[in-house]
């Protein structure tokens, strides 16, 4: 392992020092480039994020106590899609996301119900050479998470662990594809959820920094059939019935997803919160047609007490 790789240099330039965090970054990237195993690469990325957070989040300040919040969020996503059912090349684009959610935070647990609706456009990687590669994408996610406090309630450094149900539904409308116009993916997963929370004061103001991570362990997956054509030559075929019949049970071998979110919350005088979050959502599926999707989302949100 070399510590003189380009990533190490870049991170040291940013942070201007060699720290344990930087070493993990360097090691992760070095190993990522060496490894062909997707699972291993993803776990390394997770390990980096988790460890770097724990190394850095060791201050002391006010902690968030009890609260129930109605959250409205508006976000912008950058998405990269490689869907063999749609194209042999990557598509990328932006979408607008609306994220309403409910959150309840007590001494025992942190519960959330999140909805995410997205609408946007995608373009082929070679769009500049040929203007034909254009698609629309639609997304709908519904997540329920229940996390228990493991340690540190009221201390400013809190750790959570729990589970959840996450649904992920994406569809891409690509008019070039004739009867295969609608490649889609739908996953409903039982997940393991983790979270870290650090509260601190800065310039006389209260802040919360949260990191959360979700990993599906078992999922119901639905994808188009091999030729991506709905069975419209059978009048007795039902679109949703067909999809449900085609569903498959998937685990780490065929479906992998990681939802990693960092959120900075600023406490207002009213007790409400303002939030700025960055989420990285990556998933891959390798049955029938391979699929890789990565989505970066920046969300501005407002937490209202109720």
């Amino acid at each position: 392992m070399s510590l003189s790789g380009p990533w190490f240099i870049k991170i040291v330039i940013v942070t201007k020092k060699i720290s344990p965090c930087n070493l993990i970054v360097t090691w992760s990237y070095f190993d990522l480039e060496q490894s062909k195993n997707q699972m291993k690469r993803t776990i390394l990325i997770f390990a980096f994020t988790l460890v770097s957070f724990m190394i850095k989040a060791n201050g002391d300040s006010l902690s968030m106590k009890y609260g129930r919040h109605w959250v409205t969020g508006l976000g912008l996503s950058l998405q990269t899609v490689w869907d063999e059912a749609m194209s042999p090349v990557r598509y990328g684009g932006t979408s607008l996301r609306v994220n309403p959610s409910l959150q309840k935070y007590t001494a025992k647990h942190w519960r959330t119900i999140d909805v995410s609706l997205g609408l946007g456009g995608l373009r082929s990687s070679y769009f500049e050479q040929s203007k034909r590669g254009k698609a629309m994408n639609f997304g709908f996610n519904f997540d329920y998470r229940y996390l228990r406090h493991l340690t540190g309630f009221g201390t400013g450094n809190e750790v959570f662990l729990g589970g959840g149900i996450r649904t992920l539904n994406n569809a891409r409308l690509h008019s070039q594809l004739d009867n295969s116009i609608l490649p889609f993916d739908s996953f409903t997963s039982l997940t393991v959820e983790g979270g870290l929370q650090r509260s601190f004061r800065w310039k006389q103001r209260d802040f919360l920094l949260r990191y959360s991570l979700g990993l599906p362990i078992m999922s119901l997956a639905m994808r188009p059939n091999y030729v991506s054509v709905y069975n419209f030559v059978n009048p007795e075929a039902k679109f949703f019935g067909e999809r449900i019949e085609e569903h498959g049970l998937s685990s780490f071998g065929s479906y992998f997803r990681m939802v990693s979110k960092v959120e900075l919350l600023y406490k207002l005088r009213t007790g409400n919160l303002m939030g700025l979050a960055y989420q990285w959502d990556y998933y891959s599926y390798n049955r029938v047609h391979q699929l890789n999707v990565a989505t970066h989302t920046i969300t501005f949100s407002r937490y209202f007490n109720y």
């Binding site: 942070t15 992760s28 993803t42 850095k56 090349v89 990557r90 070679y126 601190f200 391979q290 990565a294």
Partner: peptide, 28 residues
Amino acid sequence: KQILYICFGVLISFAACEEVLIEKNPSN
């Protein structure tokens, strides 16, 4: 400052991950 470093580190790390995790483009 440290917190900003964390956020920035996470941001660039995930952005870079895509090049590794997502299938490469065939040449045109």
